[in-house]
Design a protein around this nucleic acid. Structure first.
Lengths: 201, 201
DNA sequence: TGATGCGTCTTACGCCGTAAGAGAGTCAAG
DNA sequence: CTTGACTCTCTTACGGCGTAAGACGCATCA
């Protein structure tokens, strides 16, 4: 009893992420996570100060997969960043709701931002304008994925008699993955073309 | 003992909303809500089937304050809808994270949608295109407010030495209410002008 | 009077996060 | 080899949670 079992913060986060991916955030408890790792709940507190920090770790891990790669003199990398952020979020859909109550200003996130700001300064945007652009793109992306992810509680079926146009839209492919993606792409370019000209003067 | 005390589903929701506004969603428990109303926890189950339904009710109440008012032949009402949605959400900031795991397809919401679709059909959009537009505007708005609302856990102070441009942006008013509003307005028009032309052909 | 039914309360179960501290294992210094 | 310190794990316990089951008081109406 009490024999080390080779746990690390990383392994704990791995298991937590897997558990959330599989069963949803509501089913993530310290006891369950412990038993998943062959360990009692309290043992986890050697690797994570409390459950909230564990959730923060999950969120950071998911979004840190989407680093912006600023390319001086261009704006295309912003769209790429949005796409990669969306991809990471869709890879762990059940983590997305956790984002809602957790800001993404981790230390690493701030470094990332500073780097992006430098690239945007090159094309004449002030830091405030740059942050506006980045913030808009990021919040749009999160919001979009949030609506894309099926909620844990299934929605009620619309009364097709009373909602003919809705029925039409569903018949036309509303809610299919390609529909979501197409909408995302169109709105993303709309935002970027609408917002980017700020720097062109 | 057991004397009726004049509760209704409405009064329960009122109290729950007030409690969440005041103390945040984490502090909303059936027992606490009950004691707020001078009643035991189990009594609430005569007005609400379970806690999840209570939260759904909260969300619906908050967003139902923002009904779109379609004006045939125009698109301005969409911007107005987005603004009123933002206003309602900002009036109850701590409810916004709850939106994250709850789709807004209540029966009332569906009627609302059908109505809006009819108005957009007037100017030549297919139901699928219309829903794309509405969905984009709504998700953008929710995402934007989500980022605007201060998280319950305070963020860490950025190292101003290491992040000069960030510091500059903060000095320029980043994060002030008027900054948020200005960003919201600019992005909103960008989206609408970028997406609306779909119907112009 | 008695029956019905509604709104409320009591009790109880199994879960949760986590505080406190005991015990076993490893390792380095004497 | 002994001793002590340190690391990791476990046990126990507390107060809170959502809610299932059902008892109780009261009003209404036959």
């Amino acid at each position: 009893m009490g024999k080390p079992v080779g746990l690390t913060r990383e392994r704990v986060l791995d298991a937590a992420l897997a558990l959330v991916d599989r069963d949803g955030p509501a089913k993530l408890s310290m006891r369950r996570l412990g038993s998943e790792l062959g360990v009692e709940a309290m043992t986890l507190y050697h690797y994570v100060p409390n459950k909230d920090a564990l959730l923060d770790g999950l969120v950071e891990r998911v979004i840190s997969g989407a680093r912006p790669r600023p390319v001086p003199g261009s704006l295309d990398w912003i769209a790429d960043f949005a796409r990669s952020l969306r991809r990471e979020l869709l890879a762990h859909p059940r983590v997305v709701p956790l984002l809602a109550s957790r800001p993404m200003n981790t230390p690493g996130g701030l470094d990332m931002l500073e780097e992006a700001l430098a690239a945007l300064a090159d094309i004449g945007l002030t830091p405030l304008e740059s942050l506006g652009l980045l913030n808009t793109v990021a919040t749009f992306t999160v919001g979009h994925v949030l609506a894309e992810v099926p909620a844990d509680s299934e929605p009620e079926a619309p009364d097709l008699e009373k909602h003919p146009r809705l029925a039409q839209a569903v018949a036309d492919g509303l809610g299919t993955p390609s529909d979501h993606e197409a909408r995302f792409e169109r709105a993303l370019t709309a935002i970027l073309t609408g917002l980017a000209p700020v720097g062109e003067r």
